[in-house]
Amino acid sequence: MSSEAEFDAFYAATAKRLVATVYAMTGDLAEAEDAVQEAYARAWQRWGRLTRAGDPLPWVRTVASRLAISTWRRTRNRLRAQLRHGPAPDMPGLSEDRVALVAALRELNAEQRRAVVLHHLLDLPVAEVARETGSSAGAVRTRLSRARKLLGEQLTNINKHDEEVVTHG
């Protein structure tokens, strides 16, 4: 298989899930898509080295995450305005559960959010999350523990609010 065909197959097999991962980290679908596209473009430029080193997905995921978080920080005000005014009319609707989860993830700090997404949404073991984030396994476990507690509180509060709206109109 040629390098181009190998890269195309890798992209087809991993891009959709990577966009979902970065979206979960940032809460902004457009930024996630842009960051993932840029990460794959950078991966193509290094494709030979990346495949010789082993699985290129952790590298692409790390690059996409860093790009998205940097962009997210620079465009925080634009994101707040978009959230205030709602999604653009041509954006597909998201399920209430997904919206609640993304809202709860936004309440976590960036390190906690990244650990949760890598560990719980991508099913990476703690040791792999530690490698990708440049942290110790103990630090990852602490972030996950604190994040789960905060997420539980956030999602419980959202559910209580929804129940009150339904019962009290």
Rank of each mutant, 00 (worst) to 15 (best):
K149G: 03
L79N: 01
A20F: 00
P58A: 09
T167H: 15
A103T: 09
D162C: 04
E111N: 14
G54W: 09
R106A: 12
T75M: 06
R131H: 15
S65L: 04
T167A: 15
L105V: 09
R52Q: 10
G54F: 09
P87M: 09
R141E: 13
T156Y: 10
R66D: 07
V63A: 12
K149V: 07
L101P: 03
T133D: 04
G48L: 07
S3G: 10
F10Y: 09
K149T: 11
A139D: 08
T142R: 10
E4W: 05
E96Y: 02
D90I: 08
N159D: 10
E132L: 15
A100Q: 07
F7Q: 02
Y40P: 01
S65C: 13
V166W: 06
K160P: 01
A24G: 13
H119M: 00
S3Y: 05
D162F: 04
R78C: 01
Q112A: 10
V102Y: 06
L122W: 00
L122C: 09
A103G: 04
N77G: 11
D90P: 02
T14V: 04
E6L: 11
Q112D: 02
V36M: 03
L105S: 07
R66G: 13
K160C: 05
K16F: 00
T26G: 07
G138K: 13
T133G: 01
A100E: 08
L29I: 02
L83W: 15
L118P: 05
V166N: 04
A5T: 12
R143P: 09
V102M: 07
L108C: 06
A115V: 13
R113S: 12
E33V: 05
V117E: 03
A5F: 10
P125L: 00
A139K: 14
D90H: 10
G169W: 11
